[in-house]
Simulated assay, not measured.
Amino acid sequence: MPRFAANLSMLYPEHAFPDRFAAAAADGFTAVEYLFPYDYEPGELRARLEDNGLRQVLFNAPPGDWAAGERGIAGVPGREDEFKEAFTAALSYADALSCPRVHVMSGVGAPEDRPRRLDTYRNNLAWAAAQAGDLEVLVEPLNHRDMPGYLLTRQAEAHALVSEIGAANLGVQLDLYHLQVSEGDVTTTLRRDLPTGRVRHLQVAGVPDRHEPDRGELDLRRVLAVVDELGYDGWIGCEYHPAGETSAGLRWIAECGGVQ
């Protein structure tokens, strides 16, 4: 049965970020994810988790200057030292929050620079995986409509990269929203990729508007039934923008037979 984690960067926008932990717990969530923890002290976030009976299941490594449009630096040539410093900070937060996985974003750039960017990303991921111990380091293909110029856009690219590096703690973060926008053929891809064991985290949102997952062109019930059939027992992050008030929009979880 699917297990859902609340993405606090997107859900509960009616609350200030520190108050979203309590709001998620009140709706029955037992796990959370979000983009970045770095604006808050680890002790404050840990207290929010513990006070509300929540576990942290995912966050991203520092992405560079997000406000300026940077979307990761791990695949940006010439910034290797900066990436290592940033990933070391992510490891510190992961340890403080008992978080088992961190997503490392590649960054955006020109298509003609792709070979060099990919080499940089590969080398940085191999280094990060070697530093991470039992922590899982994840890569995620993102669609070019929402994130033009992102290095990874297709599932096969991510799986090839992870396989080439060959680190046991390196895996793929599969967002069904990005998959549908970029490639479609969702259930076929799930049947191909989930059995590999390389997919360590799933995320869902409605397509094309990124609202509740039961809104839009995906047959969510069927997709989640396939996920269940394939024996995936990890977390599924609810990474979407609520169309209205967050709690009222969560009916889809019970209707799809999931738990929080």
Results as ranks from 00 to 15, higher is better:
44 E>S: 13
144 H>N: 15
259 V>T: 15
254 A>L: 00
121 Y>L: 13
80 E>H: 00
78 G>W: 13
42 P>L: 11
82 E>V: 11
59 F>R: 03
22 A>V: 06
172 V>T: 12
92 S>A: 14
142 L>E: 12
35 L>T: 05
172 V>C: 12
154 R>D: 15
177 Y>C: 00
229 E>N: 05
93 Y>R: 09
100 P>K: 11
21 F>M: 08
195 P>K: 03
194 L>F: 00
116 R>Y: 12
46 R>L: 02
197 G>A: 04
95 D>K: 14
12 Y>R: 10
59 F>A: 04
183 E>A: 09
42 P>Y: 07
80 E>G: 09
20 R>V: 02
168 A>C: 01
219 D>Y: 06
135 L>F: 05
106 S>T: 15
5 A>C: 13
196 T>M: 11
257 G>C: 06
91 L>C: 12
30 T>Q: 14
247 S>L: 06
151 L>A: 06
234 G>T: 08
154 R>Y: 15
16 A>E: 14
13 P>V: 08
18 P>T: 03
162 V>M: 09
108 V>I: 15
23 A>P: 08
116 R>T: 12
40 Y>K: 01
155 Q>T: 15
77 P>S: 00
11 L>R: 07
204 V>Q: 05
170 L>C: 08
99 C>L: 05
80 E>P: 10
147 M>K: 12
241 H>R: 13
71 R>Q: 13
155 Q>G: 10
214 D>W: 11
39 D>L: 15
136 E>M: 14
14 E>P: 07
13 P>N: 07
86 A>T: 08
247 S>G: 15
210 R>H: 14
237 G>W: 01
154 R>G: 14
241 H>C: 00
160 A>T: 11
183 E>P: 15
172 V>Q: 08
87 F>P: 07
97 L>E: 02
49 L>M: 02
162 V>A: 10
145 R>D: 09
120 T>A: 07
13 P>W: 01
133 G>L: 04
179 L>M: 12
136 E>R: 14
180 Q>L: 03
78 G>T: 02
110 A>K: 13
151 L>M: 03
218 L>E: 13
100 P>A: 00
103 H>G: 13
227 V>Y: 05
193 D>M: 11
18 P>V: 02
82 E>P: 13
169 N>M: 08
214 D>K: 05
66 W>A: 14
